[in-house]
Design a protein around this nucleic acid. Structure first.
Lengths: 167, 167
DNA sequence: TATTGTTATACTCTATAACTATA
DNA sequence: TATAGTTATAGAGTATAACAATA
């Protein structure tokens, strides 16, 4: 028996292409806005946003890595940049001596606040302008299960092998 | 009057986040497959696919740049790589002496054929597994207008300014 | 003068492997 | 031994600016 139908019908193919194209254009626009407004890369913005969202303003390195799909070293690099700019601070975790807790600073929050309106404007104007509220809801309803599926997918051919060695 | 409602409701925000996350994960997986199977970056694959799709197997550099959102120099770099690998060839355009016509080679087509099944498999298994055919159709229906909108958007804050000076 | 493409260059980002330290 | 994080390093990719050639 075939492992899984290795084909995409025209509709799927179109959806896939449009997804790639839309995201690419959106990402481009957003990155430009972030760079111009706050001298932030998208990843740095994501990290700051994630920290800012946390009730404590903190996350462990590992949690951040899990969220942003990065190699640990890449995360170390990016957090290092944030720290150098005074936007975040690293400190040893109290409970687990191995862990590092990253915390957003006031300056980080300020920058986030400075950057957010433009960010929202770009996303709103570029992504949601041609979509009704219902459309947005539909889109969210479609993407959520996809996201869950992707997050819980076994290492088919070449997965992160972050946790629990695969091969 | 306000230029445009600079805000995102929770549903929109969720859709946006999921879009970014889903695409990021998908991109990651696809890039790994392309790298392992054909030693191709995603951009190189896109270029080859675009050339392979063309009836003539050719495109002008400018057309490729328009499609792939790149800087010209970046495109030159990537096409240079393809040419070095014997996957594409560059030749002066007959009609316009300034233009360069890029053409996919047989080796390029072979590599494309070698890489495509795995590519499709990843996309199919990762993106479309949790979606029905109807879902895919709905998704395509939502993304198409967004794509068209993005493609025809005026340089609001910082646009390519490729053709026709904006400011 | 505007467009097409290349080159040189500098920089950002990412991943791999080796390493330290704690659980 | 497994996990958390860092460092060194190497490489890919991207953009900018200056340039050459044709329309």
């Amino acid at each position: 028996m075939p492992d899984s139908p290795p084909s995409l019908d025209p509709v799927q193919l179109g959806a896939y292409f449009d997804l790639v194209e839309v995201t690419s254009l959106l990402r481009h626009a957003v990155e430009q806005q972030l760079r111009e407004t706050g001298d932030l890369s998208y990843v740095q913005f994501q990290l700051l946003a994630r920290l800012g969202d946390s009730p404590t303003g903190s996350h462990r390195m590992t949690d951040l890595a899990d969220g942003v799909v990065y190699s640990r070293s890449g995360l170390t690099y990016q957090v290092g940049l944030l720290e150098k700019e005074g936007l975040a601070v690293r400190a040893p975790s109290p409970d687990d001596e191995r862990s590092i807790t990253v915390t957003i600073t006031d300056a980080g929050r300020e920058l986030l606040a400075k950057v957010l309106p433009g960010h929202v404007e770009v996303v709103s104007g570029l992504l949601f302008e041609p979509l009704s509220r219902d459309d947005a809801k539909t889109l969210a309803g479609l993407l959520a299960p996809v996201r869950d599926h992707m997050r819980s997918t076994p290492p088919r051919s070449a997965a992160p092998r972050r946790r629990k060695g695969g091969a």
